Simulated assay, not measured.
Amino acid sequence: MASSNLLLLLLLQALLILLSPASAAGSNVFAEYIGAEFKGVRFSDVPINPGVNFHFILSFAIDYTTSSNPPTPTNGRFNVFWDSANLSPSQVAAIKREHGNVKVAVSLGGDSVSGQPAYFKPSSIDSWVANAVDSLTTIIKKYHLDGIDIDYEHFQADPNTFAECIGQLLTRLKSNGVISFASIAPFDSAQVQSHYLALWRKYGHLIDYVNFQFYAYDASTTVSQFLGYFAKQSSNYNGGKVLVSFTTGGSGGLSPQNGFFRACRTLKSQGKLHGIFIWSADDSKSNGFRYEKQAQTLLAS
């Protein structure tokens, strides 16, 4: 009798976990890049819906020097290039304490450093991985971070070298318990895709989310085109959780004004909406984060 009661209790607990809105296997992820543009935005400025898995992504940590002008590559020795005055270790700890559904990651690379392209430029696979594991472990522990995002956009290394460097980095950080999740942030460029697809083919099992930059498509993108792009990238990153995205910085892609949320509702009805991310909180501050609220409401419903 006692064993059957215990079994019933375990089944009820499992059912409650499955029904919990914040546990839907990562299917309601809302992610927001923050800190790249030094506009004074803080974590506490951004509205956080308790019904989503919320990821702040600090932008960026880059393996370039902070002291030289211009900055030069450091072969995997990462430095902080985000607005650390407003997004400090104590502020990371505070926002996670206040909101149990919040995790914080750091994005690596980005488009530029001091106005110049930020290149992925390792001296060798082994030396880059050793330096990256060491320097990122220090940053991640200091800032109480949970994950990393890979957002290199310029390369002075072939796709296989990129795949091995990043793949071995993810392997080490995950096996060491330093991070609990990882994402990549490719966009539709032949050079970019060749590098990220090489990584995906060999190390896709270590990548939890594909933060595909749909806002890198043309600003004239229609809802039907957007859904086609989503299908294409879901096929490219087969088996991955491809998150949809838009920018509040006024550049390309399908905007909220032109039907982004209509496209999201279509994907949600098909069971394909894994999450939404926005570039970026820095730009959204001026409009009161209206689209952040709308995106999270849609995911949480």
Results as ranks from 00 to 15, higher is better:
S255G: 04
L108Q: 07
F30D: 01
D188F: 13
A157C: 04
F260H: 08
R201P: 01
Q193T: 09
F60S: 04
S234P: 09
L145W: 01
V104P: 09
N49L: 06
V133H: 00
Q13E: 12
S286D: 12
T72F: 00
I207A: 06
Y119E: 04
T221L: 14
I48W: 01
A190C: 01
D218Q: 08
D146E: 12
L16M: 11
Q296D: 09
A31P: 13
P71N: 04
D151F: 02
V133Q: 00
T171G: 03
S269D: 06
L11H: 07
L87Y: 04
S269A: 14
K202A: 10
I34A: 04
K285V: 04
S3I: 13
Y229S: 00
N5Y: 15
P89D: 08
L298C: 01
S88L: 10
G239S: 12
P71C: 08
V178P: 01
H195L: 04
G275P: 09
V92M: 06
S234G: 09
A182F: 11
L10M: 13
S127N: 12
Q156G: 03
N258S: 12
H99A: 08
T74V: 01
K293G: 00
H99L: 03
P71K: 02
N160C: 04
P70Q: 12
P186F: 04
R265M: 06
G51L: 06
K141M: 02
G177D: 07
V106H: 06
F38A: 08
F38H: 13
I139Q: 01
A182D: 10
K121A: 13
A36K: 08
T248R: 08
V106P: 07
L87S: 01
G167F: 06
D146G: 14
L173Q: 05
N101W: 04
D218P: 02
F246I: 05
A185D: 02
V129N: 01
Q191G: 06
K285Y: 05
V129Y: 03
Y229R: 00
S175W: 03
S180H: 09
L299D: 01
L16I: 11
P186R: 04
Q193F: 10
T248A: 14
K232G: 10
Y33L: 11
G252F: 11
A300D: 09
A198F: 08
G271D: 02
I17K: 05
F155R: 15
I125V: 15
A93H: 08
P256N: 03
L16F: 14
A130V: 08
L10T: 09
L9K: 12
L12M: 10
I57E: 10
V106Q: 09
A190G: 07
S44L: 03
A25Y: 10
N236D: 15
N75L: 03
F54D: 02
L8T: 14
S27E: 15
L87C: 02
S127R: 11
N131P: 09
G228M: 07
A157D: 05
S23R: 15
L227F: 15
L6S: 13
V178F: 10
Y119L: 11
N75G: 02
T171V: 03
V46M: 11
S123F: 11
S20M: 11
K241I: 12
F187Q: 12
W82Q: 03
L267Y: 10
E32T: 06
